Simulated assay, not measured.
Amino acid sequence: MTERELTAPVALTLPNGRVNPDAIGWARQPIVDTSGIGRGRGRNKRWEYWNVTTPTHILALTVSSIDYAAVHEVWVLDRATERTWSQGATVIPARDFELPAGVETGPARGRAKDLDIEVLPEEGGTRLRARIPDASFDVFAALPAGHERLAVVVPWSATRFQYTVKDVARPASGSVTVDGVTHDVPAGESWAVLDHGRGRWPYDIRWNWGAGSGVSGGHTIGIQVGGRWTEGTGSTENAALVDGRLHKIHDELEWDYDIAEWRRPWRITGGGLAASFTPFYDKVTRTNLGIVASRTDQCFGHWAGTFAVPGGDAVRFDGILGWAEEVHNRW
């Protein structure tokens, strides 16, 4: 299976709201216009998720709208003690937020009681600011010249589809403050990852997602893998980033893991990738409101393995910090 590569800007939707057939494919940059995804249709899902890994902490923010609610979160993990600081908000009806139509086309903001998030495009990258009681961070995610991102349109049908931008291995720097103590987010040792999503989703969906960023063997490595939710669509969200160059993996990957024994190494293979993932922490989230429910295990750990660069040599990597997750949503 080989997906079509998009090389020119294109609209995600047609005037009637259905997916634009010309948008189905993948790109090396976020060139799809999602302004046709708005409120009021009942199935729209829009979000900005950023995660930052540092030698001492893991930081995350989410600004999102699922049509009938705005759902936001700020989360900080101290890697040494496994203590966490977190605050989530579900605002019904959805209000007090901003989400741009495209990556870097405008700010994303989410505000609620005891929570304030700003994602601001700046020259040379993106500013990530978040504040909750007893924790805050201010991080700059640099966008190096020539850095490529994976942008994919996944069609379940003409009326159910998703545009995702997975941007891994963004150099990060700044600070995080917890309980009044400020810690560095040191440049050269910290990495940011973006998940930008815009689409119209089925009610009941399951997925895997894994990402990792770091330096190994003299190469800057980005891992981006997914599964389950793309099966049967003709699209995948799989790629490896080597020194800023994106190598698309068109195959569905094989995931071998047991969430009941999440510390056991996971195996993700296929399309030239042979990777293992060894977790050290499981961020467990459970929500059950009857019709709306969510079950997430986001495991943080380290990636190791090889990737066969098309037309080149196999690249080995080890100690790449990131995560792998299993999610089941009814939304």
Results as ranks from 00 to 15, higher is better:
Asp258Glu: 08
Ala275Arg: 11
Asn238Arg: 12
Val315Ala: 04
Glu254Met: 10
Asn238Ser: 08
Arg228Lys: 12
Asp297Cys: 10
Gln224Trp: 07
Phe280His: 11
Gly311Asn: 08
Gly232Asn: 01
Arg245Pro: 04
Phe277Arg: 10
Cys299Trp: 00
Ile320Gln: 00
Arg228Gly: 02
His302Ile: 05
Gly270Thr: 09
Ala314Tyr: 01
Trp303Met: 00
Trp266Tyr: 06
Tyr257Ser: 09
Asp243Val: 02
Ala314His: 06
His250Gly: 14
Glu261Ile: 03
Pro265His: 02
Thr230Phe: 06
Arg264Tyr: 02
Lys248Phe: 09
Thr278Cys: 01
Leu246Glu: 08
Leu253Ala: 05
Asp318Gln: 13
Gly232Val: 07
Thr296Asp: 13
Pro310Lys: 12
Gly312Lys: 07
Arg245Tyr: 04
Arg295Leu: 00
Pro265Lys: 07
Thr230Cys: 14
Ala304Cys: 05
Gly290Tyr: 08
Gly311Ala: 04
Gly290Lys: 05
Asn288His: 15
Leu289Pro: 01
Ala260Ile: 10
Thr236Asn: 14
Tyr257Pro: 04
Asn238Tyr: 11
Asp243Arg: 09
Asp251Ser: 13
Gly322Ala: 01
Asn288Thr: 10
Asp318Trp: 01
Thr306Gln: 09
Leu273Gly: 07
Trp262Glu: 07
Arg295Gln: 06
Glu237Arg: 06
Gly319Lys: 08
Ser276Ala: 13
Val225Asn: 05
Leu246Arg: 07
Gly226Thr: 00
Arg263Lys: 15
Val315Met: 02
Phe307Ser: 01
Ala239Gln: 03
Val284Lys: 09
Ala314Asp: 08
Glu252Ile: 00
Thr233Val: 07
Asp256Gln: 11
Pro279Arg: 01
Tyr281Arg: 01
Arg264Pro: 03
Tyr281Lys: 01
Val315Thr: 12
Phe300Pro: 02
Ile249Pro: 01
Trp262Pro: 12
Asp318Ser: 15
Gly272Ala: 13
Gly312Thr: 06
Leu273Cys: 06
Leu289Tyr: 08
Trp266Arg: 06
Pro279Trp: 04
Ile268Leu: 08
Arg267Met: 05
Gly234Lys: 09
Arg316Ser: 14
Trp229Glu: 03
Gly271Trp: 07
Leu241His: 05
Ile291Lys: 04
Trp262Leu: 08
Leu241Phe: 03
Leu241Ser: 04
Glu261Leu: 15
Gly271Ala: 07
Asp282Met: 07
Ile259Pro: 12
Asp313Asn: 15
Phe307Ala: 00
Ile223Leu: 09
Leu321Trp: 06
Gly232Pro: 02
Gly319Thr: 07
Leu289Arg: 13
Gly244Glu: 03
Asp282Asn: 12
Asp313Val: 15
Ser235Cys: 02
Arg264Asp: 13
Glu261Val: 12
Thr278Asn: 00
Ala308Asp: 12
Gly227Arg: 07
Gly234Ile: 08
Ile259Leu: 14
Leu321Arg: 10
Ile223Val: 15
Gly311His: 03
Glu252Thr: 04
Glu231Asn: 11
Gly271His: 10
Glu252Val: 00
Gly232Phe: 05
Glu252Cys: 05
Trp262Ile: 03
Glu252Asp: 13
